[in-house]
Design a protein around this nucleic acid. Structure first.
Lengths: 225, 225
DNA sequence: CCAAAAGTGTTCCGTCTACACCCATGG
DNA sequence: CCATGGGTGTAGACGGAACACTTTTGG
């Protein structure tokens, strides 16, 4: 391979993952304490370096897989973070990605092994470098996406109750929603299908379980929640 | 400076600018033919490499300045583009930025010297590498921004007529708007101020010139157009 | 039998949309 | 005097918001 651009400085590239989950009616992200220098011991997003044989998206997916063992996760780029001194060592530019996962799909043992935990989005500690900025921007994008595209289901089990779904949207929007209005809107979406199954865990009466039918949802339908 | 991360490959970083302008009632972007290898002669965005002593935002602003001589331009990051083979030479990861400028602020001589031209957004030729993707994503973000924040004025002279403003929004939305409804909405925005000045260039009767008062606009006002 | 969550419609109000005519002036 | 773009109000449709009671059943 010929070297065309010799006169410019090269930099290290990393990816950092903002991994959203939903438990106890709250939005959370996965963070842990750094176990390497620089910044050892500080709270931090999970990340990794981009290898020469992979694209940025691939690096992000691989990194997420390393941490969670999950594939085919919904992921989107947040953006590149490239302030000169963002990393106290040498220059590292990082590309942040956010991911939406169902908390129950993440094995608790594996989570502990990696030393990461679910932290309430409204209670994020001071983190290493510019990681708080990354989370802020990721959250904004995620919220936007949730409003206009049916991606919330990525945060729930494949079968869910309408109350669960409502609590999720309440957590995202940061405000309570009217139950009847919410359910009315859901009823209009034929790709959110009621099943015959009943969930008895959360109430004595039992709540109908619903399922998101990805195939029935086509892009042209305009989603609003 | 200590080298902490030795085992990872470094890459070249560039920025590419999607520079939006508005003339002849159409949205345009500035593109030119590449005058360097690889890809010499192909249509391309204007870009440059990121130096060791500047952040990504600074690199983007510097690059835009080199091309246009303009400072303090509205610019936003589009994202990082990092497919392995996006550059036929060695690996280059590029961070795209979009900018909104008033076409008349860009000196025609300077433009010609750089060999770039205003090309209709709906008529973009095949471009070098992934530049068409960058434009697509930039356009999406720009459209989104224009709908929810008062940034359209960046594309217009500081004094403008309501018809100009309407044509701009029509170009962005890709559909005609009702004149009376449009003007009604504008009237409700007290930070779009009518001046005593009259523009006689576009009509015999003359049209009132308006001005956007940045100070009068506060973030809490929710903008919708 | 009662506590606790599930489930279900209607009315009201504000917002958006559709729509047509007069005005001022330069050529 | 007429062609051209500038400027103005109202009525009807639609969609979103507010709101309370009945059902089921495990303990």
């Amino acid at each position: 391979m010929t070297t065309f651009y010799t006169e410019f400085q090269k930099v290290l590239l990393s990816v950092d993952c903002i991994i959203f989950g939903f438990t106890d009616n709250k939005l959370k992200i996965l963070i842990g304490k750094r176990n390497m220098d620089p910044g050892r011991g500080e709270w931090s997003l999970y990340g990794g370096f981009v290898r020469g044989d992979e694209s940025l998206d691939e690096a992000a997916n691989r990194t997420l897989f390393e941490l969670t063992g999950l594939r085919k996760v919904f992921m989107r780029q947040v953006g590149a973070f490239g302030n000169i001194d963002r990393d106290p060592g040498e220059r590292v530019v990082s590309v942040a990605y956010y991911a939406l996962i169902n908390v129950k799909d993440y094995d608790e043992e594996l989570r502990k092994q990696h030393g990461v935990e679910w932290v309430d989005l409204d209670n994020i500690p001071q983190m290493y470098s510019d990681h708080n900025d990354m989370v802020r921007r990721a959250r904004k994008l995620m919220r936007q996406k949730m409003k206009t595209e049916p991606v919330g289901f990525e945060l729930l089990p494949s079968l869910f109750t309408l109350t669960q779904l409502q609590r999720l949207y309440e957590a995202v929007n940061g405000e309570e929603l009217d139950k009847r209005n919410f359910r009315k809107r859901i009823k209009d979406m034929d790709y959110i299908e009621k099943t015959e199954l009943i969930d008895k865990k959360t109430s004595k009466r039992g709540a109908a379980l619903y399922r998101f039918n990805k195939k029935a949802f086509t892009e042209d339908k305009n989603f609003k929640l």
